[in-house]
């Protein structure tokens, strides 16, 4: 098990910096259209904040905050959001991921609907990337046993 660090400095500084990093990840996801970044990058930053949490608070505490079950739910929820945004377009009679027809069910004109569709795709990608990155990291550092490691 990756233990809680006994080192006061690293623990305190990480505690202060983790919320800021998480908020930055969400910012990158939300502003994917106007600045560099998007779903994948934002998801990676969110995963990085969880890696920092593993360093600072230990694996046990991290798993209590972000459980295995929640991780599985998130990693499939992202794909679900992605796929259903595409399928809605298909069901409304356009191509896969052709967002502009979403204006039929959303209270928005086609340009705004394209915008919202793109945003929901990015949210889906971000959620999946975050969950998969976190589980990859935990599997790698513990050799898949979630016990001893690093």
């Amino acid at each position: 098990m990756i233990q809680r660090t006994e080192n006061i400095i690293i623990r305190t500084i990480c505690r202060i910096l983790i919320p800021a990093i998480q908020l930055f990840g969400l910012y990158v996801i939300a502003h994917g259209h106007g600045s560099p970044g998007g779903g994948f990058q934002g998801g990676c930053i969110l995963a990085a904040s969880f890696i920092l949490m593993v360093i600072a608070l230990g694996l046990e505490e991290t798993k209590r905050r972000f459980t295995e079950k929640l991780n599985n739910i998130f990693s499939s929820l992202g794909v679900f959001v992605y796929a259903w945004t595409g399928w809605m377009c298909l069901l409304l009679g356009a191509n896969f991921l052709d967002y502009s027809v979403l204006s039929a069910i959303l209270p928005a004109d086609p340009i705004k609907a394209r915008y919202l569709g793109m945003f929901s795709i990015e949210v889906g990608v971000g959620i999946t990337v975050m969950a998969v990155m976190v589980s990859l990291f935990i599997d790698l550092v513990t050799g898949g046993k979630h016990g001893e490691g690093l």
């Binding site: 505690r15 983790i18 919320p19 998480q22 908020l23 969400l26 910012y27 939300a30 905050r65």
Partner: peptide
């Protein structure tokens, strides 16, 4: 964008309020 900000800050506040202030 402001409503997105409120949602994001809400999420982060919910997950990590105990980290920032002990």
């Amino acid at each position: 964008h402001l409503s997105l900000g409120v949602i994001s800050c809400g999420i982060v506040t919910y997950t990590s309020h105990s980290l920032l202030f002990e």
